[in-house]
Simulated assay, not measured.
Amino acid sequence: MIKAIEEQRSLPTKTTARRKRFSLTPWLWIGLAVLFVIIFLLYPMFFTIWLSFLDATSTHFVGLHNYLLIFTNSSLLEVLRNNLLWLVLATVATVVLGLLIAVLVDRVRFESVAKAAIFVPMALSFVAAGVIWRFVYEYEPPGQTQIGLLNALVTALGGQPQAWITDSRFNNFALIAVYVWMWTGFCMVILSAAIKGIPSEILEAARCDGAGEITIFFRIIVPMISPTIAVVTTTMIINILKIFDIVYVMTGGDYGTNVVAVEYYQQLFNFNNFGVASALAVLLLLAIIPIMYFNIRRFRVQEAQR
């Protein structure tokens, strides 16, 4: 009898211990992940922000000097201008072309073959694409055999060969074309999946009411897949803001083609200017944060509507 009473008294203690053990279990599971986030994400981020307020050797505090230098130095302003050019042209080109191709190939018999052919460049790395397109843009002086595909076509049609990579009139557009060639397939696949999710009854009803294909495109297709368009657009913007490989491989940032990521690399590893390099990294972070906030807010609105 006494033993039974003692066992009943020990039950609350065992239950409390079990609850404590269960309450600690989730932290044991996520503790390592949290530690990795702190070590490899939060600490480098805050340390980079701190370095952006120091001089080139990270020994003296200079305040906002590095940021002022970025917005006053002519070469750094050119870097920002190039990034803005990439942001506008590459984003618009990839999303618009991806949407148009997704709509057009949806109506052909060889849809899968066409999509596969357009998506193939995504299988290449940026470095491989840069090397390939360096040969495409290869330039030889007039009168010599043009080994570059583009100049060979130009001269065959009676034109003069152009230095597509080194001529500042063309080079930024030539580099953007490489990115568009690679990422249009990605946009096409995502947008094509969204288009196939539109109920066919809606499209047939619009056609029965006399709506033309252009009207259907702008009044039905685009509004119904607008969330997907927003996702693809923000993905392109984030990719373009940190574009590096194509520019580094094809021009190394020379001939007026430099962008923020390449300039960051050069400032850090070539010039050992930790202050300006960190300031450039912080600027990229500040540019991406509003885009991520927009995405998160949009996802919450969609979840609330469901």
Score class of each variant (00 low, 15 high):
G159S: 10
V180Q: 09
T91C: 13
R297N: 14
S278V: 04
L24E: 01
D209P: 07
Y179N: 07
V79F: 08
L280E: 01
R81G: 15
I238S: 02
P12G: 04
V301T: 05
K3R: 14
R219M: 07
P12E: 02
W133D: 00
A277V: 00
F61P: 08
M292E: 12
M1E: 11
I190L: 11
K3F: 11
F274G: 12
S23Y: 13
Q146G: 06
K242I: 02
A114R: 02
A4L: 13
L283Y: 07
A211L: 13
I221S: 06
I132F: 10
E140Q: 15
V62L: 05
G256T: 05
I225L: 09
R134E: 02
L11I: 15
G252C: 07
V276F: 04
V222C: 08
A281H: 04
P12I: 02
I229D: 08
L203K: 05
T155G: 03
F186N: 00
T166C: 10
A152P: 03
D167S: 10
N270E: 14
N239K: 06
T233E: 09
P199N: 05
L283E: 11
I195M: 06
Q8P: 00
Y139F: 13
I291K: 01
T59L: 11
A230F: 12
R207M: 07
V127M: 02
W181A: 08
G212D: 03
W164I: 10
I246E: 11
F46C: 08
R298M: 14
R207C: 03
G256C: 08
T234I: 15
A205D: 08
I30Q: 06
T13K: 15
E303C: 00
L99C: 01
F22I: 12
G197E: 05
V154P: 02
R109H: 06
H60N: 14
L24K: 00
S58Y: 03
N66E: 04
F61W: 15
L77M: 14
L175Y: 03
W133T: 03
G185A: 09
I118V: 01
A129N: 09
M122N: 12
Q146I: 01
T94M: 08
D254N: 15
T234R: 10
I214D: 01
A33M: 13
K3L: 13
N272M: 13
I216H: 08
G197V: 04
I147M: 14
L11G: 07
Y179M: 03
V222N: 04
L87C: 09
C208K: 07
F269H: 06
V62D: 05
P161W: 08
L77E: 13
D55N: 00
M122T: 11
L191H: 01
F71D: 05
Q162G: 11
L68D: 06
L89N: 02
D254A: 15
G252N: 00
P44Y: 11
I176P: 09
F299W: 10
I132P: 10
